[in-house]
Amino acid sequence: MKISFHINGGAQSVAVDGNTPLLWVIRDMLDLKGTKFGCGKAACGACTIHVDGMAVRSCSYPAKFAEGKNITTIEGLSAGEELHPVQQAWIEEAVPQCGYCQPGFMMATAALLEKAPNPTDQDIDDNIVNICRCATYYRMRKAIHRAAEIKNANS
């Protein structure tokens, strides 16, 4: 079927089986490789993107549901050259090690900050439930608080 949506600000149409997970449309048809495959069962969060501003695990999100939606991937998180506050904070706190899971974490964090501009540690524990095998959680928590600061200072 033909599915039309906006991704990272641009209109896009793809012809694909509607049950294809959106992850593969993004990665292999649109060649946006920042969204990662980790488990294919929505268990690790490496594939997290935004659909109409909500954090969604794209490996388990059928492409047909994307019809008419606004999709953002890690490639579209920054506003042009200027990095998103989450990315800025991730750099300031030097979070990534291998880096593979980090786009998913950053997308989950960016969505969290939209609903909780000053997240508590409990908010972070409850909402940031992706998996990082390098176990960068200690710096990530600091970066999430820092991202909230940057974002609030900007607005």
Binding site: K33, K36, I74, A94, V95, Q102, P103
Partner: peptide, 20 residues
Amino acid sequence: PRIDLHDKVAGAPIFGMDAT
């Protein structure tokens, strides 16, 4: 700072899975 920091926060296609 790590020299791969920017690529890794930008989601650059640098991993084996991303190869084409």
